[in-house]
């Protein structure tokens, strides 16, 4: 239907008299719609924070994690000034496919291997450091699993060794993480380092992650560590 000045836009037979009246009519409806939208958002936020509501008596902080919110209106509850979020990798879902090293817009990648020392066994034969099947436990390059030699092995006392990651050399390939998890305590984890990450709107690693391990997390809880 062609929309002209003569069209009955009010629906009750009255036709607008002028262009000015037409625009005034449109603006009035837009304002009414906006008022309804903001009123609805305020209502849902209040309902979320009421005892028994989805927020269970606590203000949900503007629903930073909408996935956890049970409210069907949770998308409405997100305030305009919500908490800042950043990309992070969930180690529990990560399959160490190697794409973190190749898909990041930064080279080397903003994803790095992080060592949880509280989970480490300080093993002499560390499978995060040595190639599986290595017979001679020396730091020769052919014995190391890290392609860039980013893991430093330091003698503590017999038979304990400390392993530290040189983040400037780490490319986030996850080879050490895979073997540490497969044969050790799993104390090596991949994480997006936020001093490097440029926080793209659409993270190119997340888009190509076969395990769906990437998600946005609140910036003040930016690191996710799986516990043993």
């Amino acid at each position: 239907m062609r929309f002209t000045m003569d069209t009955d836009i009010r629906g009750y037979g009255e036709k607008p008299k002028s262009r000015r009246e037409f625009f005034r009519f449109i603006i009035r409806w837009i304002l009414l719609l906006l008022l309804g939208l903001f009123g609805g958002m305020a209502f849902v936020r209040r309902r979320c924070s009421l005892p028994g509501g989805p927020g269970n008596g606590k203000a949900c902080g503007g629903c930073p994690s909408l996935a956890k919110c049970k409210s069907p209106y949770s998308w409405l509850a997100k305030p305009l000034g919500s908490r800042r979020t950043v990309w992070q990798l969930d180690p529990a879902k990560c399959i160490q496919c190697g794409r973190c090293a190749t898909e990041c817009v930064l080279q080397p990648s903003a994803v790095k291997c992080i060592h949880r020392f509280d989970m480490c066994g300080y093993c002499k034969l560390c499978f995060g450091y040595f190639q599986p099947g290595t017979s001679v436990l020396t730091s020769a390059a052919e014995n190391q699993i890290c392609p860039t030699g980013a893991i430093r092995r330091k003698y503590i006392e017999e038979p304990y060794y400390e392993y530290t990651i040189d983040l400037s050399l780490c490319i986030g390939c996850g080879k050490c993480v895979k073997t540490c998890g497969a044969f050790g305590n799993g104390s090596l984890k991949l994480q997006v380092c936020h001093d490097l990450c440029v926080n793209c709107n659409e993270c190119s690693i997340a888009r190509n992650c076969p395990a769906g391990a990437y998600s946005r997390v609140p910036a003040d809880e930016a690191y996710l560590f799986k516990t043993s």
Partner: peptide, 19 residues
């Protein structure tokens, strides 16, 4: 859509399964 298809088949696999 950001799905990019199923990459799991082409994802690099370490030879841990062989070991």
């Amino acid at each position: 859509s950001g799905t990019g298809g199923d990459h799991s088949r082409t994802a690099s696999r370490h030879d841990i399964d062989v070991l």
